[in-house]
Computed example of a mutant assay.
Amino acid sequence: MLGLLLLLQVLASCLWLGHSEVVNNFINPCVQFFYAQTPPGGGIRPVNAARICQVYQNQYRFVTLYDRTNRIPVYSAYIYQPGPGNRYNSWFVEPQLINQKYRKDMDEEIAIIQQYKINSTVIAQSQAIDKDYSGAPGLDRGHLCPSGHQTGIDKTATFTLTNIVPQYMGLNQGAWHDYEEITMRDKTRGCDTTYVITGAVPGNRSISNGRVNIPSHIWSAACCLNRRKPIKAWAAIAENQIERNHVRNLDLGELENRLATLYGRGGITLFRNSCTGKEASHP
């Protein structure tokens, strides 16, 4: 009987971990979105960070490291799987950034306000809200995990403000859009699975009276597998400036070195062993 009780306690503990969205680490619930089940390491994590396993309709869709201070994501990590589906016409926020005891699924502000009897001011204390992006001329809501890189209902899940940064319209609809839609399509030929990490470097400007940071750079890196073996990696970076509309293609190592300089917190590793054949035994 004692052994059965202990087993039930262990199972209950595992179930609780599986139902956590804002988590202490990515290892337990949503590590499947990282190549070799290894999140980025080194100086990429800010002091006031939150790890989010992005949940929509009770399923994990991708993951985000969120900067609570700047109210933008540091990065979103996902598996590239473009396909049919519709864009969502509204925006979600993250309940468990407000209160760890709230439910795990992303939802619209009004639904959270009605369920928990709070107001937008309470939500805004922990994250960006829809109002922050109004009245920001020349800036789009730039996805880090793009809806165009997902299929079906996974597209809807990308419309959460914890996956969004203020991105200048010319870049978001110009060279960066071309990278997302054309370069990624071309480079992923021959890939059975492609792991992607897309991030933003905080800048020195903001919107909404200083609440939401405008990134100085947008970057992305990809690790391509064929028959579960890594065969190549690539990367890109762009200055997020009103007068700039250019994406620079880089090697993975070049991007990591560039980010180490930009973040200024030491070396950065985006993919374990640089997405090389040494990791062939990992899924």
Rank of each mutant, 00 (worst) to 15 (best):
R185G: 01
E239M: 05
H143T: 08
G138H: 12
W176P: 07
Q173H: 06
W234Q: 00
C145R: 00
M184V: 05
H149D: 15
Y133D: 07
A157E: 08
W234F: 15
Q241D: 15
A236G: 13
L161C: 12
K232S: 12
R205S: 15
N213E: 12
G152Q: 15
I153L: 10
H143S: 07
D178R: 12
V201Y: 05
I182H: 12
I207A: 13
H143N: 05
S216L: 09
S208Q: 03
H217S: 00
T151P: 15
L144K: 07
Q173K: 10
Q167N: 11
S126R: 14
T198C: 11
Y195L: 04
R185L: 14
Y195A: 07
V165H: 13
D132G: 10
Y195E: 09
T183C: 00
S206E: 10
V196G: 01
R227F: 04
Q150S: 09
N213I: 14
Q167W: 04
G135W: 12
N249S: 12
A124H: 03
T160G: 08
I237P: 00
F159D: 01
G174H: 11
S206P: 05
L225H: 03
L144Q: 07
I153D: 03
C223Y: 00
N209S: 15
H149E: 09
W219V: 08
V247A: 11
E243N: 15
R244I: 13
M169I: 10
A175N: 04
T156M: 02
A136Q: 14
A236E: 08
L161G: 09
R141C: 12
I182T: 14
V201C: 08
P202F: 02
G148N: 05
P166T: 12
C224G: 00
N213Y: 14
P215V: 10
I231M: 12
L161D: 00
R211V: 04
R211I: 01
H246Q: 10
H149P: 05
T158W: 01
T160N: 10
L250P: 02
G138C: 02
A221H: 01
G142K: 08
T193F: 03
A157C: 11
V196L: 01
I123Y: 11
K232P: 02
I153P: 01
T188P: 03
R141T: 04
S147Y: 10
I214Q: 10
G148L: 03
P215F: 02
E180Q: 11
G135C: 13
R189A: 07
C224A: 03
R227A: 11
A236V: 04
A128R: 11
N249L: 15
G174D: 09
L144I: 09
I123A: 07
W219R: 04
C224S: 01
N245W: 10
A222Q: 05
Q127N: 13
S216F: 09
Q150W: 02
A233F: 03
I218H: 03
T158A: 04
